[in-house]
Simulated assay, not measured.
Amino acid sequence: MTPLGRALAERIRSEGPLSVEAYMEACNAYYYATRDPLGAGGDFTTAPEIHQMFGELVGAALSDVWVRAGRPDDAVYAELGPGRGTLAEDALRVLRRAGFAGQMHLVETSPRLREEQAKRLPGAKFHDELGDLPKSPLLLVANEFFDALPIRQFVEGRERHVIIAGGGLAFDRDGPIEEISPARDAVTTQLAQHLAAHGGAAIIIDYGYCRGEQGDTLQAVRSHAFSYALDHSGEQDLTAHVDFAALAQAAKIGDVQASRAVSQGTWLETLGIGARAMALAAKNPQDTDRIAAARRRLCDEGEMGQLFKVIGLTGKGWPAVAGLGA
């Protein structure tokens, strides 16, 4: 049992069974505070790390909506859970070319990841939570942020807990599972309140489903392979699929508009990843195969293209994000 696993076992002995929500929150807080989980030497790889095309197209979408909103000079770029800062670097390169001169604000609680972000993104301003962002229009992106927020699980209406059994951690009940995430709803509502009050646009990208599907989606990833969620507590990434219908419902604040959710592959193709791939290959013919492989991984149905979804939120008077109509 890991150090955190032993601490959680002691907590269970002292306080009683832990909800799945409490377990997931404790594990991910410890996990992200103690390591850089990204890349070949970590546990998983996110889309911005696969190729620059991903961040560039996010930047192009944000540039487009900013220009169509009238180029407000008080708008800021913001990102929730910005990883190593790769997405922000690529997106801002495109935004700057469009004339955007706003500040960069990163919501990040991991000291290790903040170090990486600060190296890559000089001048970035760091915040512990969404509510600390400036009261300005946002050009915000959250890529693989919501999946790590804790969920609650229920079996036949009774909440599922983590207990001690057989000398280790175990779930107290099994069966058909329903999941909700008050934490995700709260963040989405807070984001929508900001957009309602100050304007802006947000792009949320994550893996999940669109029509309120149910089932057990809690999963762990360790060294780029799936693992059992109750093993290696605090030393593997715990996530669950995002319910995009629930996000859209939580965003219904004032005049905030939530787009339909579309697949990542469809969105990137609509934004022109094919043309961008061809342009990059023409300039770097030695990288043609790598660029083509990256496009397939980001867009193909059997890769990230279908599992990952994209939704846009916009404040009053702001146009819809390209490729994400109402």
Rank of each mutant, 00 (worst) to 15 (best):
D74P: 09
F145E: 05
D243A: 07
P17G: 04
G70Q: 09
A26D: 03
E15F: 08
K125T: 13
V94P: 01
R296D: 02
V58N: 02
A170H: 06
T217Y: 13
R276F: 00
E79M: 02
A26W: 04
L324I: 13
G166H: 03
I253Q: 05
C299D: 03
Q117L: 10
E115M: 04
A69N: 14
L113I: 06
V65L: 08
A98L: 15
L280C: 00
P134V: 11
Q306S: 08
R11F: 09
L218V: 07
G312Y: 02
A240V: 14
F154G: 07
R120C: 05
P134M: 14
H127K: 01
G83S: 15
L324V: 07
G123T: 11
Y207C: 02
A183P: 03
A118C: 00
V310P: 00
R184P: 04
L191Y: 00
E235S: 06
D73E: 14
G215Q: 10
V262S: 15
T86L: 06
A248V: 01
P137C: 13
A240W: 10
A201Q: 12
M1Y: 09
L106Y: 13
D237N: 11
L280P: 00
A88R: 01
D74L: 12
L230Y: 13
R71M: 15
F171Y: 10
E89W: 14
E10H: 12
W66V: 12
D74T: 12
G274W: 01
H105D: 11
A229W: 09
E25I: 12
S223Q: 07
D174G: 07
G102V: 12
R160M: 12
R68H: 15
I291L: 02
A202Y: 03
A248F: 03
G131W: 00
F126Q: 00
Q264R: 02
G39T: 09
G200D: 13
D255E: 13
E235L: 09
R11A: 13
V76P: 05
E156L: 06
H198L: 13
T45R: 06
G317I: 14
F54D: 01
G16M: 05
A75I: 11
Y209S: 01
I273H: 01
M24F: 09
G5K: 15
E301P: 12
T217L: 07
P150A: 02
P176Q: 05
G123F: 06
G317V: 14
F171L: 09
R120N: 02
D231Q: 11
G85P: 13
Q306C: 14
P82Q: 10
E10C: 11
A88H: 05
G215Y: 15
E49C: 09
Q306Y: 15
I151C: 08
A170P: 09
D74S: 15
Y32C: 10
E213W: 04
T188V: 04
A22K: 05
D147S: 05
I12P: 03
Q52V: 11
A250L: 06
L57F: 02
D255F: 07
Q286Y: 08
W66A: 12
V187M: 00
R114S: 01
R296E: 01
A326K: 14
L121D: 03
E303V: 01
R120L: 07
A26R: 00
S14E: 15
Y77K: 15
M1P: 15
I253G: 08
L169Q: 08
Q286I: 07
R260Y: 15
A320V: 10
A60Y: 01
I205V: 09
F171P: 10
L169S: 07
S259Q: 10
Y77G: 13
G208L: 03
